[in-house]
C-alpha cells in the first residue's frame, strides 16, 4: 500500500469517526460540521474530475452546486404545497423523496453542463476560466431576478426530504447518507480515472494533439468529463440544500465557485481524496478562526495565499510526496 493510499484510508475513516465521537462527547454540533465536510468534499470531487484529471479550470461550478440545490428546493416546495410542477402536457408533481430529487438534480445539471460545456470548451486557458465564471454569473442573476421561487430571498425547505427506510431528520442518519454518496462518487472517480476514458482524459490535458492523432477527439472526452463533473457537484448541491433546509442565490455566487476550487487545490489537484482533505481543512479553519475573530476571512486569505505561493501540491502533496505523473 502506498503512502497516499494509507492517508486516503485515514481521511475516509477519520471523517466517518467524527460524528460518532461527537455523539459520545455529547456535542451534536460536530455532526453537522462533519456533514458539511462530506457534502462540500463531494462538490470538490466533482470539480476535481474536470480540473485535476481533465485540466479544465472551471470557475463556474457554483452554477451546478446551486442548480442541484434549487432542484431539491423546488421539488420539495411543490410536494409540500401539493401543487403540480407541470400541469400540461403531462402532470408532473413535486417530490420529497431524496432519490427522485437526486436524479432530477443530476439530470438537470448534466443537461446544463452539456450546453455550457459545448460553448466553453471551444476555448481554453484563461478564456475558459472567465467564460465558465460568466455563465455561472448569468444563472446567478437569473435566480435573483426570477421571482417565482423566492428570488433574492431564497427558498426554504420546510421538512427535510426523506430517504426510504431512514429518518433524515436524525443528524447521524443524514450524515451517513451524505457520507455514502461521497464514498460512492469517490469510487466512481477512481474507476473513471483508471479506465480507458480516464486515460484519454488525462492525455487530453497533457497533450491533446497526441490524443487526436490516436483517433480520439479531445473535445468529446472533455465534454463528457465536464458533464459528469457537473452532475456530481449538482448532487452535492441537492444535499447541501437539504442540510440547511434552505436554498438561495448565494449558493450560485462566484465565491462558492472559488471555495470549491480552494477545496481541490488545498487538498492537492488531481488527488483522489484531495477534495476531502481540502474541504476538511477549510471547514476546520473557518470554524476555529471564526471562533477567534470576526475578521477570520482576512486570516483565511493570508493562509490561502501562503499555501498557493509556498506549498505546491496541497496537503496530500506534503504528506504523500510528489507523484510520478504530475
Amino acid at each position: 500500500m502506498s503512502r497516499e493510499t494509507v492517508i486516503n484510508w485515514v481521511l475516509g475513516l477519520g471523517l466517518l469517526a467524527v460524528p460518532f465521537i461527537a455523539l459520545m462527547q455529547g456535542e451534536p454540533f460536530y455532526i453537522t460540521l462533519a456533514t458539511r465536510v462530506a457534502i462540500l468534499a463531494l462538490a470538490g470531487v466533482g470539480l476535481n474530475l474536470a480540473l485535476g484529471l481533465g485540466g479544465m479550470v472551471s470557475f463556474g461550478h457554483a452554477a451546478f452546486f446551486g442548480i442541484g440545490g434549487y432542484a431539491a428546493g423546488i421539488l420539495a416546495t411543490h410536494a409540500f404545497n401539493q401543487e403540480p410542477l407541470l400541469a400540461w402536457p403531462l402532470t408532473v408533481s413535486g417530490s420529497s423523496d431524496m432519490l427522485v430529487i437526486w436524479l432530477v438534480a443530476i439530470a438537470i445539471c448534466a443537461l446544463v453542463a452539456l450546453v455550457i460545456g459545448a460553448i466553453t470548451l471551444r476555448t481554453s486557458g484563461v478564456y475558459f476560466i472567465m467564460i465558465t465564471l460568466a455563465f455561472a454569473q448569468m444563472i446567478y442573476y437569473f435566480a435573483i431576478s426570477w421571482p417565482a421561487y423566492g428570488g433574492e430571498d431564497g427558498l426554504s425547505i420546510y421538512v427535510r426530504n426523506g430517504f426510504p427506510g431512514l429518518n433524515t431528520l436524525d443528524p447521524i442518519q443524514f450524515f451517513l447518507i451524505c457520507y455514502a454518496v461521497l464514498m460512492a462518487c469517490l469510487f466512481i472517480s477512481a474507476r473513471l480515472r483508471d479506465s480507458r476514458f480516464g486515460a484519454a482524459l488525462q492525455v487530453a490535458r497533457q497533450n491533446p494533439d497526441r490524443l487526436a492523432a490516436t483517433g480520439i477527439a479531445p473535445f468529446n472526452i472533455r465534454l463528457v468529463a465536464f458533464v459528469i463533473s457537473a452532475a456530481m457537484t449538482g448532487l452535492a448541491g441537492a444535499l447541501f440544500a437539504d442540510l440547511n433546509r434552505f436554498v438561495s442565490p448565494s449558493m450560485l455566487s462566484w465565491h462558492v465557485s472559488g471555495e470549491i476550487m480552494i477545496f481541490v487545490i488545498l487538498g492537492g489537484v488531481g488527488r483522489l481524496f484531495g477534495p476531502l482533505a481540502g474541504a476538511a481543512l477549510f471547514i476546520v479553519m473557518e470554524f476555529y478562526l471564526g471562533g477567534i475573530t470576526e475578521h477570520w476571512q482576512l486570516f483565511l486569505g493570508i493562509i490561502l495565499l501562503c499555501v498557493v505561493l509556498f506549498v505546491r501540491g496541497g496537503i496530500l502533496g506534503i504528506m504523500a510526496g510528489r507523484r510520478v505523473h504530475a
Binding site: 480540473l51 479550470v57 486557458g125 475578521h295 482576512l298 486569505g301 490561502l304 495565499l305 498557493v308 505561493l309
Partner: peptide
Amino acid sequence: RRLYDRDHLDQVLATFALILIFSEGTRW
C-alpha cells in the same frame, strides 16, 4: 511577482486570496 511563472490556476487562487484579504481588511 511570484505568480508570473505559475499556471492560471495558481494565479486565480492567489488573487482570490487577495480579495479575501483586501475585503476583510477594508471592513476591519
